[in-house]
Nucleic acid binder design. Structure first.
Lengths: 347, 347
DNA sequence: CTGTTAGCGCATTCAA
DNA sequence: TTGAATGCGCTAACAG
């Protein structure tokens, strides 16, 4: 029983031996090469199936040949925001449909200088890298951009013009949300925003400022809280604003997760929403629409964003020498639900 | 300028040329081989850095050599349940710490016969595969088990004894939850469970039956709803049960997502929780603890589950010839919050 | 129609 | 301490 090889992997040579042909013949038959007799082809396929030989998808050696792995790295800050999990879900769907696998890389960049995790990607075993949560000063993005590797940013952008980016119209979305609050009669509007080194936060705040300016107003810096995009941030933020001497009548949140924290804190502390306090979120994640919440928010077409980001990535991979720097901006829409109302009358 | 190679990738040979040594010398120097002069080593490192040569992590050729890629496939049904996103987050953390990347595979197995997505994994370019949402009849698990590839099941198990599995004590957890309801005085308990081809659903129902039996009771089949683990399922399920002639006073849900759907529907339709209806979930996902929800539920140590699953996987990879079939069952604990109370008095 | 040869980038012999 | 040669599994170029 000497031939009981310890090799786990079934190779094309094994199939060749089984059929009694050369290894390249197996390769050709399985690849659908027309210059192979009907009979040989059938015998090869039969043997391949019998031996459980992996066809169809590229493996290491094929990758070595073509310098292609059909794997795309997707970088995300965390999986705790359902906006991103939804985005990942759709991205995976699109990439898988095109025959690409997705390598997940969760990296919060707590230390932006630490690129150790990124080393795995820098290795360039991947066909491309898609960032979904880049900070504006991301060293990782800069380093990857310097390499000749297909790179696409989704959701958040950075101030490098030569990088493809797919984002939503945060400025317009925020503007519309603030105009909605102003129309309802609110004048003292609080802001609980995301990190001030993310394009989403900055753009949304910019839109808010524009809306206020159109009405001869400007944001009260005492009513502006910058922090992480987290439930906790909204929870503590609203309590801080509520207990300040400039108690707001409405709060514009950097995203839905923050808004849910705000609503949660409000319920806990007897602040009636929307009677005493109006709340607006951003993203329109699924929970926002639940009956128990009914959050007024700005909808961002997550599915379409993922679709376009995936498409850009595939384009980059197929024509790596095309000039990059394309920017897609997707429209948003205000979803009016139950967390906004006119401010309480002073009396 | 003939030497302007079109090759994108920087190879060890490029570094060798730069330094003026042979390719194997570069390989050795970077691998930390002691039989390399201090000076050569330094020059190699310098050149590698200068040329942006990828060290440290294995790439295609290294994988080809060792038949190892340091990549682990993780299969999950969907990213819409935050229990799984949390699990993925922790799994990623553990695997990354050990130097492994995570390839995500989202597959709902709408058609269990369709293994096309799995082909990518069957390719065996991966060092191991970790299932988090296997159904009991999963063809994918059976096929992979037949291959000699490290395989670990987390959360859900299948009836194949030879496969490593890490799961929580669903039977005890459910039992405790039902006993809690019985102690409160409930007698007509409704069940909105997950799919009846998942071990989690079956085990949780089994525990519920056991608790009822200890009190001389048994579940009313008219009050048992089996369906997907979704918000929608809980939402529609509770309305069905509430409008039946056997209206329950409490509902045990297959997981928290279902329970949130139940609570949501109850709020929407004026069914006061817990005054008119008690609700118990399972998993203790973060939302369950939010002030606005305060769901009574069964806590499953997600972090620990992920940790152990990752550890098992690494063990399997390191000693592939050890007999498999280890089963870890993690303890659960009942978290009493605000959605359970004694049933309304008949009067 | 099919076999032979070579090479993708690396690590690992064996020689020197 | 280093270099030359070899092979991982596959596809592509070249023969036949």
């Amino acid at each position: 029983m000497k031939q009981t090889a310890r090799r786990l992997r079934v190779t094309s040579r094994d199939v060749a031996r089984e059929v009694g042909v050369s290894q390249p013949t197996v390769s050709r038959a399985l690849a659908g090469d027309q210059a192979i007799s009907q009979e040989t082809r059938q015998r090869v396929f039969a043997a391949a199936e019998r031996l459980n030989y992996a066809t169809k998808y590229p493996n290491l050696s094929k990758g070595l040949m073509h310098q292609k792995t059909r794997m795309i790295g997707v970088v995300v800050a965390a999986l705790t925001n359902s906006y991103y999990t939804l985005l990942l879900d759709r991205l995976h769907h699109e990439l898988a449909a095109a025959g690409y696998s997705m390598i997940l890389m969760i990296d919060e960049y707590e230390n932006p200088k630490d690129l150790s995790k990124l080393q795995m990607l820098l290795d360039k075993t991947l066909d491309g890298i898609l960032f979904t949560t880049a900070t504006e000063d991301s060293a990782a993005v800069r380093v990857l951009h310097a390499q000749a590797i297909p790179l696409v940013l989704a959701v958040r952008s950075v101030p490098i013009k030569e990088i493809d980016v797919v984002e939503s119209d945060n400025v317009m979305g925020a503007k519309e949300a603030i105009l909605h609050l102003l129309e309802l009669g609110h004048r003292r509007i609080g802001f609980i925003l995301g990190p001030n080194n993310t394009s989403t936060s900055l753009q949304r705040f910019e839109g808010a400022i524009a809306a206020l300016a159109e009405n001869g107003l400007e944001p009260d810096s005492k009513l502006c809280v910058w922090g992480p995009y987290s439930h906790e941030s909204g929870y503590s933020g609203v309590l801080r604003l509520w207990n300040s001497d400039q108690r707001p009548t409405a709060i514009f949140c950097g995203n839905d997760v923050i808004a849910l924290g705000v609503v949660d804190a409000a319920r806990k502390h007897g602040i009636e929403v929307p009677q005493k306090l109006s709340v607006v979120g951003f993203d329109d994640i699924p929970i926002a629409g639940w009956s128990a919440i009914q959050l007024t928010t700005v909808r961002v077409g997550i599915g379409e964003l993922a679709l376009i980001a995936a498409r850009r990535m595939l384009e980059r991979i197929q024509s790596p020498h095309e000039p990059s720097g394309r920017r897609d901006v997707l429209p948003t829409s205000l979803i009016r639900r139950a967390t906004t109302a006119p401010p309480p009358s002073p009396g």
